[in-house]
Simulated scan of single mutants.
Amino acid sequence: MTLFKDIYKDLDNKIKMGLYKKGSALPNEGELQLIYGVSRTTIRNAVDQLVLEGKVIRKRGIGLFVSPKVTKQNILNMTGIIKPTYLKSEEKIKIKDAYLRKAGAYYAQIFNISPDVLVYYITLLAFSDEEKTYEKIIMPLDLFPAFDPEILKVTSIIEAINTGTSDVQDVYQDFQLVEVNEEDSKYLSIESGSPVFKITNTFSDNEEKNIAVEYKLQNALTTKYKIDFD
């Protein structure tokens, strides 16, 4: 197999068959070169075609990912009426931690699961030119059996959640002004007790079942928000 079209078709078929799952990482171009025994240019041409068709996401310094599924519902209408004014700035994502833990009583109630069921607990920092955001994401393992946290570096949170077994159909958003605790203040590089905006996004599927929760913390003294009532 030497032609880039053959490699493109092979990768495309593996994606369609689920050998490379939605939102999962693909081998990088160097690894693909070894797998197929061809030049880097041939691999790049094959990957370029997959990227052009929206089947693969490429981000320099991070890697290649199978594009997640996006629901037909307008994503912009599900992000809430509260939006930061720096939204147009490109964000860089740094995963701080990602591990499994028991849901406990609190998340068991949110997700309607047993307290002993495992959930993903992911923390990350999102940097833009104007702001730093500390985020926490909690998702039940049984709804995301093959979740790769690295996908959060290249897609929106809704697209990442759509790599699971259910699709996002609605988002409930809660906005609060609170005092940051000592642990969270370190990630935002501010003093404990400083005012922060806390946004909680609870994502649900078409059966109105909660499938993920996202918390976002931002320095209230530097972040400006606009509220769209239309």
Rank of each mutant, 00 (worst) to 15 (best):
Asp148Met: 10
Ala105Cys: 03
Lys132Arg: 14
Ile137Thr: 02
Pro149Arg: 09
Tyr99Ser: 03
Lys69Met: 11
Pro140Gly: 03
Ala98Glu: 02
Asp48Trp: 04
Arg44Gly: 02
Tyr172His: 11
Lys153Ala: 13
Lys92Ile: 11
Thr79Asn: 11
Pro140Asn: 06
Lys136Arg: 15
Thr85Trp: 06
Lys94Asp: 14
Glu150His: 09
Thr155Cys: 13
Tyr134Thr: 03
Tyr120Gln: 03
Asn74Lys: 14
Glu130Tyr: 12
Gln73Asp: 15
Thr155Met: 07
Gly54Cys: 03
Asp116Asn: 05
Thr133Asp: 15
Lys132Gln: 14
Gly80Arg: 06
Thr163Pro: 03
Ile62Leu: 07
Lys136Leu: 13
Phe127His: 01
Phe147Ala: 14
Glu130Phe: 11
Ile157Asn: 07
Ser114Cys: 04
Asn77Trp: 06
Val168Met: 04
Asp184Pro: 02
Val117His: 09
Val117Cys: 08
Thr133Pro: 05
Leu152Pro: 01
Ile157Tyr: 10
Val51Leu: 06
Thr133Met: 13
Glu179Trp: 11
Ala103Ile: 00
Ala46His: 03
Thr133Gly: 11
Lys55Trp: 07
Thr79Lys: 13
Tyr172Met: 14
Asn112Lys: 15
Phe147Thr: 02
Ile110Ser: 04
Arg58His: 13
Glu53Phe: 09
Ile110Gln: 09
Tyr120Lys: 06
Phe111Trp: 01
Ile75Thr: 12
Asn162Ser: 08
Gln49Ser: 13
Ile57Gly: 07
Val56Ala: 05
Pro140His: 09
Ile110Ala: 04
Ile157Trp: 05
Thr123Ser: 07
Arg58Tyr: 14
Ala105Thr: 06
Tyr86Ile: 05
Arg58Phe: 12
Pro84Val: 01
Lys136Cys: 05
Val51Trp: 05
Asp184Val: 00
Val47Arg: 00
Tyr187Lys: 01
Asn112Gln: 15
Thr85Gln: 12
Glu90Met: 02
Asp148Val: 11
Tyr172Glu: 14
Lys94Gly: 07
Pro68Ala: 07
Lys94Tyr: 10
Val180Gly: 00
Asn162Tyr: 07
Lys72Ser: 15
Lys96Ala: 12
Lys59Asp: 11
Phe147Gly: 04
Ile151Asp: 12
Arg101Cys: 03
Tyr187Val: 00
Ile95Gly: 01
Glu53Ser: 13
Ile75Tyr: 10
Gln109Pro: 04
Lys55Ile: 03
Lys69Glu: 14
Gln173His: 04
Arg101Gln: 12
Gln176Trp: 08
Ser89Arg: 04
Asp97Phe: 07
Ile122Tyr: 00
Ile151Tyr: 10
Leu87Phe: 10
Ile82Ser: 10
Pro145Ile: 02
Ile113Asn: 02
Lys153Tyr: 12
Pro145Gly: 11
Asp174Phe: 15
Arg60Thr: 12
Val51Lys: 01
Ser166Phe: 10
Asp142Pro: 08
Lys94Leu: 13
Gln176Ser: 13
Ile137Gln: 06
Ala160Asn: 04
Gly54Tyr: 04
Asn77Pro: 05
Glu182Thr: 05
Ile151Thr: 04
Ile138Trp: 06
Gly104Arg: 01
Glu91Gln: 05
Asp174Gln: 11
Ala98Gly: 02
Thr155Ile: 07
Asp97Gly: 06
Val171Trp: 02
Leu100His: 01
Gln73Arg: 14
Pro140Phe: 10
Phe175Gly: 00
Ile137Cys: 09
Leu52Glu: 15
Tyr172Arg: 13
Thr165Gln: 13
Asp129Cys: 08
Ile95Gln: 00
Arg60Trp: 14
Gly80Asp: 03
Val70Ser: 12
Leu141Ser: 10
Ser128Tyr: 02
Lys69Phe: 10
Met139Lys: 07
